[in-house]
């Protein structure tokens, strides 16, 4: 296409190669940095982050009753366990994902777990041995430990702490 004889392209020399490589690296760095605001904008915004703390008053939950509260938009089960439930929970190690009951509670009569099945994310119903997930039939005991599959893991215990004897804050900080 081009008349090569008339337009002569000088062969690459080292300086030129170095300059082009340096510019490419600097340019690629800039493009990568320019992606940061775009990617970051899809992370939770500051008002969503501010909703990551939930305060719960426990005094209204009677013995054996369960309260479901929203934390980060997810259901959290707060179960006021009866002595029998505590006893049966402490007597076993769970099934598929063995864990001590004492490692999952702060006060034995209060179980706080995220009510999201660890299999495919459905919300289990309170029935049977503790909870049964109707999506795929996973069963959990009164410590929120999985005792029948297909769920691979126990119900997650969210970070929480007791502000007073009957008040907890779910979430970090």
């Amino acid at each position: 296409m081009m008349d090569k004889a008339r337009i002569q392209v000088l062969s690459d020399n080292d300086r030129r190669k170095f300059l082009i490589r340096l510019t490419s690296v600097v340019g690629a760095g800039g493009v990568a940095a320019a992606c940061v605001p775009f990617v970051a904008s899809m992370n939770p915004s500051s008002d969503v982050l501010a909703k990551s703390l939930t305060e719960v008053d426990l005094s209204s939950i009677t013995l054996g009753a369960m309260l479901t509260v929203a934390w980060q938009g997810k259901p959290v089960f707060i179960l006021h366990r009866t002595p029998e439930q505590i006893k049966s929970a402490e007597s076993s190690n769970g099934g598929i994902d063995p864990e001590l009951d004492s490692a999952r509670v702060k006060h034995a009569e209060w179980l706080v777990v995220v009510g999201v099945c660890t299999h495919m994310g459905c919300v289990p119903n309170q029935e049977g041995p503790g909870w049964i997930c109707h999506c795929h039939g996973s069963e959990y005991d009164h410590s929120g430990r999985v005792i029948r599959g297909p769920a691979p893991k126990n119900l997650e215990v969210p970070p929480y702490h007791f502000v007073t004897a009957d008040k907890i804050t779910i979430g970090l900080a």
Binding site: F38, A40, S41, M42, S45, S46, D47
Partner: peptide
């Protein structure tokens, strides 16, 4: 990326711009 945060509703659109400007990470830049 702005459309991911904007709301086309007369009751919400002005507020959603302020949401983008103040709360969304780098929303002001976008």
């Amino acid at each position: 990326f702005l459309a991911m945060h904007y709301k086309a509703d007369v009751a919400l659109s002005f507020d959603s711009i302020q949401h983008i400007m103040r709360d969304v990470n780098y929303g002001w830049l976008l």
